[in-house]
Computed example of a mutant assay.
Amino acid sequence: MIVFIYGTTAEAIKIAPVIRRLNAKGIPYQHWVTQQHTDSLRKAIPELGFTSPDETIANGFRGKPLKSPRQMISWIFDVVRWSVRNVRRIRKELPPNSVVVVHGDTMTTVLGTFIGRRLKVPVAHIEAGLRSGDWRHPFPEELDRRIVGRFAHIHYVPTEEAGRNLAKRPEVVFTHGNTAKDAVRDAAGDSDAAVESFGLVLLHRFEFISNPQLVTETLRTLDGNSPLPLRLIVDAYSRDAIEKTIAELGLSKFTVMPKLEHSQFVAALRSASFVVTDSGGIQQEAAVFGIPTLVHRKVSESREGIGTSAVLSGWDQSTVAEFLANADRYRVLDVDPGLSPSDIIVEDLIARGLAAPAQSLES
């Protein structure tokens, strides 16, 4: 049995292509949620075509999104309590040759890995091996990846560099990219997108939002230097800080929008003239289509698009301004779609005897 453990909307989006391919082959699986995100994840699950979760491990902070370190700690204790109460029962229920699959660099990735270890089944990590080289940036994501890299059993690495970072680990599989590639291709279909006259902005990471001076400087630079109106997508965690700063500074180029359904987001992404983001996932998705992208981070463990369609700001405001003035020079046409990371993952799980297509189950 394949068991996906995830807790954020981004994780759900990136495991969705794998789940779609399992469905196509009639391969059974379960998905367990920690609700690290609450409202947005509950909305995304049916939109992505998922069934109701087989296990709800936790439910945010009293059913609401996590917005502070104190709430995060409370949520972690909820996950640990669930594990103490249920792991022994589930260990007896899981069939032989089961596997826990986690994704990325969240606290759910870490906790899901330890749940898998307690269940005494192998743990497979999708998007493994990425490293920024500095544990402080991005924080805590870089630490999360290093912890999971030590305790997971199977490592699905999206790049050769990520594979080299795990050279001492057994069971490293090169997937030729991130499953985000499949997520945006599945959502986009074969239709072309016309470029519209707006910039798409998504800034939400803890290390950015928790730095008021950086938030102020960045929003002021974007408003003062963008030649186009800006559509700024916020989540429950980032909304308050960003909206407050925009109001206090009297900025006029921003239209603040809530998170979109993934297919709607992909349509907005493909239509944008450029993207400004601190999200590694958005960086990867934009690179699929060669969209000019400013990665507004100190460092990035993801290399997708860097040097072609993407620029790393290093939080330097002059780099932000330069990108805005010359964004179109970074647009890349005719990006090679390459192999499907999700296909590679599913075929590897089958080869390991951890998944079996329906016809194999019947024979």
Rank of each mutant, 00 (worst) to 15 (best):
V299G: 14
E171N: 13
P229M: 00
G305K: 01
G305D: 02
W315E: 11
P138C: 05
I19Y: 07
V195R: 10
F208P: 09
V335Y: 15
L111A: 08
I344K: 11
P341G: 09
P227A: 03
A183P: 06
R169N: 03
R20M: 10
Q284Y: 13
L94V: 04
W82S: 05
F151H: 06
V173Q: 03
F198I: 00
V157F: 05
D105C: 05
G49H: 12
Y156D: 08
R146N: 05
R89C: 06
P138R: 02
N86Y: 08
T277K: 00
N23G: 11
S300H: 00
V102Y: 04
K259H: 12
I45E: 11
F274E: 12
G63W: 01
F4G: 02
Q35F: 12
S273V: 09
S74G: 07
I306C: 00
A12M: 08
G49D: 10
A321M: 02
L249G: 11
F254A: 05
E243L: 08
K120W: 15
I73H: 14
S302M: 09
Q36W: 07
S226V: 01
L260R: 14
R62N: 03
L143K: 12
L202C: 12
P341V: 07
A12I: 03
V195T: 14
G250Y: 06
P65I: 04
G26V: 04
S210A: 14
S98D: 08
D186K: 10
E304I: 14
E11W: 01
G314D: 09
E127Y: 00
M257W: 08
D240L: 08
E93S: 15
G280R: 02
I57H: 03
D316L: 13
L312S: 06
T216K: 14
T179V: 10
A193T: 13
T277P: 05
K120Q: 13
I76Y: 03
A16R: 00
G133R: 02
L94E: 08
N326F: 12
R136A: 11
G305I: 05
R89N: 10
F114Y: 06
I19P: 06
H262E: 10
G129P: 00
I344S: 09
I306D: 01
S342M: 07
E141K: 01
A351L: 14
A180Y: 04
F77I: 14
G353S: 00
K181D: 13
G250W: 06
I345K: 07
K14G: 10
V101H: 06
